[in-house]
Design a protein around this nucleic acid. Structure first.
Lengths: 191, 191
DNA sequence: GTCTATATTTGGATAGAC
DNA sequence: GTCTATCCAAATATAGAC
């Protein structure tokens, strides 16, 4: 067995993810990724022999894993309202209360590899499906449930942009607080 | 007088703006800016002696000008509902029906110069103020008007992200279509 | 005002010692 | 597994001809 890594895979991915989220794919330089992780550039290449595209792919895979946890309450929790509230809590933690951008936003600008953009599209679809399902379970029609899910995603992504631009997390917090209402509340739904 | 420019300032700014909107500040390489404008890199430096930061600053100034036109109906048009509809139409044109991202999003990632980010913040504030004013004029309380304006901005920015990620302008079109409702419709307002 | 040519720096990537 | 040293390409920027 070789020498133990100075930073475990999970912690490493977390640091790399943060850089990609803050700077976007092209803005995430090897220098930035290196200093964030504490590993020299050559060490990053040892972990990711295919370089920056591989790092970005690993980040996307990591985020997919994190989202499977974020969305888990929507499947496992019986009460839809409780389920959405718990999902909102986990979303808030992942976005560090609005201080971190979404990979769906920063990894889909021109310059990002096609496979990364495709993964972002897939992640968005997964998220939308899970949110639509909980709305459906709370009594919404299929059409209304799909609409509510899209609105929820728009509010989360938009509030993250606004929070960044205004340097104020208030809008993001509000979007999360209203998520149960957005997905399962109001007219036409039992929630 | 010297030789006439091969591309007029206005057209040049439009091309540069598109690159910055698609790629973000760091992703907008001189090569990309050059091929989009049809000018060689050295010619871009002739127009902007302070290089890429100056190009980005000029782009922000240009966008500020465009927004003063986009927001003009909110001041000059008597009927709030008509005013918002016309603003929405101009917003749709500026974002090319959801195909172009917002500078508020792409120019505020890490790596963009501080003064560019500050201009983005200022632009967002100007936009919010103008939208809050029309909501106020339509009968909303000051608090409700401010809330509606923030929601409108969140919906526009979020729907642009979602439209890009899903490669489908539908969500953006919907956000624009519902803008009158968002700003001046519903309970608690005369619109 | 635009061009070709070139300088300089940064970013991405590799080789080989430890 | 991480490091120093190095290579190569791309990005930013400048000089000077036309």
């Amino acid at each position: 067995m070789g020498r133990a890594p100075s930073i475990e895979d999970e912690a490493l991915l977390k640091q790399l993810t943060e850089v990609f989220r803050r700077s976007g794919y092209e803005g995430a330089s090897l220098t930035a990724l290196s200093s964030a992780s504490g590993l020299h550039r050559a060490s990053l290449y040892h972990r990711f022999p295919n370089g920056k595209p591989a790092m970005a792919a690993a980040v996307m895979a990591s985020v997919e894993q994190i989202f499977s946890d974020i969305l888990d309450p929507l499947m496992s929790e019986d009460d839809p309202s409780t389920a959405v509230a718990e999902m909102a809590r986990r979303v808030g933690a992942f976005y560090d209360d609005g201080r971190l951008a979404c990979v769906l936003d920063t990894m889909t600008l021109r310059g990002a590899p096609d496979d990364i953009r495709a993964r972002a599209t897939h992640l968005a679809t997964t998220w939308l499906t899970a949110m639509a399902e909980i709305a459906r379970r709370a009594g919404a029609s299929e059409e209304d449930a799909a609409r509510r899910a899209r609105t929820a995603l728009v509010l989360i992504e938009g509030s993250l942009v606004v929070a960044r631009v205004l340097d104020d997390p208030a809008e993001f917090r509000l979007a999360l607080a209203e998520l149960p209402q957005t997905l399962i509340g109001g007219p036409g739904n039992a929630g």
